[in-house]
Design a binder for these strands. Structure first.
Lengths: 176, 176
DNA sequence: TATTATGTTTAGTAACTACTAAACATTCAA
DNA sequence: TTGAATGTTTAGTAGTTACTAAACATAATA
């Protein structure tokens, strides 16, 4: 059984669309990344429109999202008004970039609200059931510790120059 | 400034709702977990309805989702028809459970489609541009390697008896 | 300046999600 | 067997999301 390359590529694009959707991104994002990832040369917006089947508007916004995540890079050529896009092929680099992006947004503010709860619990005095206060303090503190651990890991990964296979191997060793 | 405990709790519930939403779960899921997490005793479905402000139907489905993720445990008491729910307080345990759950579903099938692409590319013969085939093989192989690394990490974590602070500290050391 | 090539923004829409309200199912007890 | 307590499922809905089509903006060229 031997399939033609275009069909195989199409299959890959659909696969990444699903993965993209699974991770909470629009499907178009995955499709566009897949198209770029399978292209040996950077693609223009119009070429992406053609290859992904989306409209210009969609490609325009999706490709910008990808660029913000560090998964694609935009470049321009001298004497050519078009923008060109190419896929980041170092996934570890991309992970760091995504972690950095996620760090900012509302994730921080959400986590901060847990810390605020903790501080309020510590500040509150009088007219409250002291046993309950203690119980709540313990629980919220435990959650806070957990978030801090996640945060540490995330920051540590972000700080790495390169998260290569050897690092992964080392981590795997620790996890036995 | 001293707030009453109920208000502080409410604030916490809202915070976890946001976090829940951020991670791609319904807000109700976060709210219900928060209510259970702040309760020293297991709560019944009706108590959860009262504390979360959701309807029975919503609580019924959300709490089941939480149970499937291993974030809450359902129990029943002798001579009492009600079900009771309590929060898992070991977050590392919960992570393992979530990873296990995620492993199953369509994530696998999505990743599998990348592997299929790889296999097809290896199988294809004749009537294809050999240079392009080689290029595609390289790229798809690299992505596959990345997924495999993620998968290894995920499985390693799932396999641990307990992912305590000491393990996290060790990983942090590696990441320098 | 008018024309063309490119990218962005906007208005509208179809599909989806998380929920509510209420019907339904099940189990226990009288 | 009926009735009450509990939990689940279903039908409908409001809000959201990811997209399309098309208007718009910008800049280069004639």
């Amino acid at each position: 059984m031997s399939q033609e390359l275009p069909q195989i590529k199409q299959n890959f694009v659909e696969g990444l669309s699903h993965i993209s959707h699974f991770w909470g991104f629009p499907k178009g994002v995955g499709a566009i990344f897949a198209a770029l990832y399978l292209s040996p040369a950077p693609l223009s917006l119009d070429e992406l429109v053609q290859q992904s089947g989306l409209t210009k508007g969609a490609v325009s916004t999706d490709v910008r999202a990808l660029a913000r995540l560090g998964l694609v890079h935009r470049s321009s050529r001298l004497g050519d008004r078009k923008d060109y896009y190419e896929a980041e092929t170092d996934f570890y680099k991309a992970i760091r970039s995504i972690l950095g992006e996620r760090q900012n947004r509302e994730f921080d503010s959400a986590v901060r609200s847990v810390r605020e709860t903790l501080e309020k619990l510590q500040a509150v005095r009088g007219s409250v059931d002291e046993a309950e206060r203690k119980f709540l303090l313990e629980r919220v503190q435990a959650l806070q510790n957990f978030f801090d651990a996640i945060d540490s890991l995330s920051r540590a990964v972000s700080r790495l120059d390169s998260l290569g296979m050897s690092t992964v191997q080392n981590i795997l060793k620790i996890l036995k």
